[in-house]
Design a protein around this nucleic acid. Structure first.
Lengths: 119, 119
DNA sequence: TTGACATGAAACCAAAAGGTTTTATATAAT
DNA sequence: ATTATATAAAACCTTTTGGTTTCATGTCAA
């Protein structure tokens, strides 16, 4: 059986602020667990668990070097998030362009209704 | 100074697959709770709680119409996610450009390991 | 006015999440 | 060889999460 169990997905993985901060750190450079831990007020064990979750989402990978385990960022799974987001982009981009239009035409009369139907 | 408590943020809100599905439904049109519930195998109460979480993240809003409560998508907070993502885009875009380089140079020797295989 | 309906609110529950402490093991340094 | 370092693994704890059931309330329809 291949590595497809994926107990944690990318949406879950980035839900926790500590894990997002871990990703930030690893974006700069590969780091061992102890180094990562030094940036947080929690125990090394807790950080290791966060790394486990990130690892299951395949956002990071760890290799053992001597007695250290060096973690590396693996950003590819974030494309799933990007794809998910792209579905909604049209919505707010639309609203932003309406706003832009209003701002650029100060003499406009603006009527904002609360109606459901948009087509 | 009104709705700024924000117990749930957008990252947490989208972490749950049911809530993501709710957003999809609301992307098509405004819906009352009972309608939304009919798309899931869980109770109306459970759906209402998911809507509460989405509402705290300001991703949806509900208005009462008669005896129904109609929910509407409010996609603007997703920009926070987009902004967060943009920080990491350069990483995988960089990898894509490496891939492009390989494709455009057919004489290159390429060694691809299979260890990160996903299905 | 009497049901049927749509929701709200509260109490409850099991499992997961996020954390800790303790114990063990491998590697590095002296 | 001994000790310090870096991690792993396991047991345990508390709070949150995602769900349920039950009961109450407001509104629509006959």
């Amino acid at each position: 059986m291949s590595s497809s169990v994926q107990k944690h997905d990318v949406f879950q993985a980035i839900a926790d602020p500590t894990r997002r901060e871990v990703l930030r750190l690893l974006a700069e450079k590969d780091l061992p667990i102890s180094e990562i831990t030094s940036h947080f007020p929690i125990s090394r064990t807790a950080v290791a668990k966060h790394l486990q979750v990130l690892s299951e989402a395949e956002l990071v990978s760890g290799r053992k070097v001597g007695r250290e385990k060096i973690y590396r960022l693996h950003p590819e799974p974030l494309t799933e998030l990007k794809d998910w987001l792209s579905y909604y982009e049209k919505f707010w981009e639309n609203k932003l362009s309406i706003l832009k239009h209003i701002v650029e035409n100060p003499s406009m009369k603006v009527n904002i209704s609360d109606e459901t139907d948009k087509d």
